[in-house]
Amino acid sequence: MRAVRVRLAPYLLSLPGWFWLGLFFLVPIIAVLSVSLQTGNPDTGYNLTWHFSEFGTVLSNYNGELVRSFLYGAISTLAAFVIAYPMAYWIAFHGGRHKSTYLFIILLPFFVSFVIRTLSWQFLLSDNGIVLGTLKNIGVLPQSTHVLSTPFAVIAGLTYNALPYMVLPLYVAIEKIDRRVVRAAGDLYASGAQAFARVILPLSSAGIFAGFLLVFVTNTGDYVNASILGGPGTTMVGNVIQNSYLSNQDYPTASALSSILMVLLLFVIWLYARVFGTEAVEEAVV
């Protein structure tokens, strides 16, 4: 009797977790999928009619936004990686006693609300704001320069907001690298650049994988940066979903787009995991 209880204990202990997941993850997903198959209008209500053609309609209406989302997501993820890697590397290898202080400084702006932070970027990048205004006044930039409402502004915002999610996993991975192994590479005729490419970079692959995953998924589905820093030409799929749902109350369109976004993201991640090997995925998850 006791032996059975002991054997069952792990399963019983994990039950609340499964219940939570079932309630707040599985149910909404099923709801979203079912809503995407409904027809109707905000006045008369919606009914489940297994209307699969909604997917075709949103795909043809919003393929531009979908492509743009993945493009912005990919570019901002790469940019965040290029900026974050040297920071994480420097803190891990040269931060000395103050490693946690440097990490805290990187996290500090994130104690401010996401929306406020992005709004302050709007203020910074406005046509006559601190940055552009000053540069225009001293004649470095022509008076006609715009940054807001351009893809550059949206991608810059996405990149900025993603930085800590890139720095932290990279830092954890780089910090774990045995410095003596790097020294061994130097002993075996590897120059600094070769030691980096052949030893440090592969040994931080788990962090690279985790950072890419976190940032790419978040940024591809983002709508805040595009709505605050972007313009009519930079609408992302997140903005369409938000508008359909909250403004137009067109629930089937919003749900269908959400489902498509989710499936596409899962596909990209699957592809990515295939290329980088399952080991990295496991390491990233652990």
């Binding site: 045995d178 003596r180 192994v181 020294r183 061994a184 590479a185 130097g186 002993d187 075996l188 005729y189 590897a190 120059s191 070769q194 030691a195 052949r198 030893v199 592969p202 040994l203 692959s205």
Partner: peptide, 27 residues
């Protein structure tokens, strides 16, 4: 170090964990 005709056996071995034995010796 990388330009010296000298090799070291380290106290901690310092083998490359991401490479197999061939990759280590061939480095």
């Amino acid at each position: 170090a990388y330009k010296r005709d000298v090799n070291t056996v380290f106290q901690s071995y310092a083998l490359f964990p991401h490479l197999d034995i061939f990759g280590n010796i061939a480095f």
